[in-house]
């Protein structure tokens, strides 16, 4: 009989669970019915929470892998200041980030390029906020004897016209070209600054890696490879090349001698609500800009 009692309890638990499931189903149905209104509701709800119950807000941020390290570190320090903030940062690329904020899937997008006209047409109420500047370094394996390329050589390598390292002063080995996916802000800037001036396109044979960290790792793993990454991602596992004799360093980018310079943005849909505004304000503050500098990007104004 004790077994019966025990199974009775199991059954009651199961029924309770059914009730929970039903409740969820009901919730789904109602939110389905309200889906058009609910998205605006969420925003006002967040606002109210921030205003009334002290500082509590969930911020979902998604976008550029270039911008992600800055926002992640800022989120970490920011939540130490305001423990009620729950910030999650997804590094998924600029294009997906803009789409995600535009279609209301996240609160803040990140982009490592200017927004495109078609994006503004599709989501007219997107508001980009410039939070930092950056450049792109052309990187090879540290063991590669090549230290310098001209911009045109880089364009030809990525177009698949130069296919062997010996053509640019390296060993007699094939070049493994690693590029970013379409929609990436870094790829966009790279194409704009390097490929377009010579009327070339990135070869379809190139290996596509999604995100700065993956390109960096792929280059570090392959002695014959060449890739391009954000300045903030350059570390000892890869070797940045001089372009037309100029090193990819912050001062050269600011002087304009290094040929690639770009802006980094966070993007909101419509005017930022108070919670978003607080976080963006932090990014733009001296403390936020200090993070930008520490991580190897270019701050908007001198901080030190």
């Amino acid at each position: 009989m004790s077994g019966g009692a025990a199974s009775g309890r199991t059954v009651i638990a199961a029924l309770a669970a059914v009730a929970v499931a039903m409740f969820l189903a009901g919730y789904l149905a109602s939110s389905f019915a309200l889906s058009s209104i609910s998205r605006t509701n969420v925003k006002t709800a967040t606002t109210t929470v921030v205003e009334t119950a002290g500082l509590n807000a969930r911020l979902n941020v998604a976008g550029s892998t270039t911008v992600a390290p800055i926002v992640e570190e800022a989120a970490r320090r920011f939540s130490e200041l305001y423990p009620g903030f729950r910030i999650s940062v997804a590094a998924i690329g600029s294009g997906p980030g803009i789409k995600a904020v535009g279609s209301g899937e996240v609160d803040i997008g990140m982009a490592s390029r200017d927004l495109k006209e078609e994006e503004f047409e599709r989501w007219p109420d997107l508001k980009p906020f410039r939070i930092a500047m950056d450049s792109i370094a052309i990187v090879v394996h540290p063991s590669n004897p090549v230290n310098e390329l001209t911009l045109e050589q880089v364009a030809k390598i990525f177009a698949g016209e130069i296919r062997n390292w010996k053509e640019v002063g390296g060993p007699d080995k094939p070049i493994h070209v690693i590029t970013r996916e379409k929609g990436s802000g870094t790829r966009d800037c790279f194409e704009h600054a390097v490929m377009k001036p010579f009327g070339k396109e990135v070869s379809a044979e190139a290996m596509v890696q999604q995100g700065n960290p993956k390109v960096r790792a792929a280059v570090a793993n392959d002695p014959l490879s060449i890739g391009y990454i954000s300045l903030g991602f350059v570390d000892e596992t890869v070797k940045p090349l001089r372009i037309d004799g100029i090193e990819p360093r912050i001062e050269n980018v600011l002087k304009g001698t290094y040929p690639i310079k770009r802006n980094l943005y966070v993007v909101t849909k419509g005017d930022p609500d108070p919670a978003e505004l607080m976080f963006i304000g932090y990014l733009l503050s001296a403390e936020g800009q200090k993070i930008v500098e520490e991580l190897g990007y270019i701050p908007l104004y001198p901080v030190s």
Binding site: N60, S79, I87, S88, V89, A90, Q209
Partner: peptide, 28 residues
Amino acid sequence: MGVAGYIPASPLDPARTLPVHLYLIAGE
């Protein structure tokens, strides 16, 4: 896929689970 500096508490919090974390950092 977000990296979060907090432990998810509400069912509406996003969460990067272990397999997703592994997939995203593998190759990085």
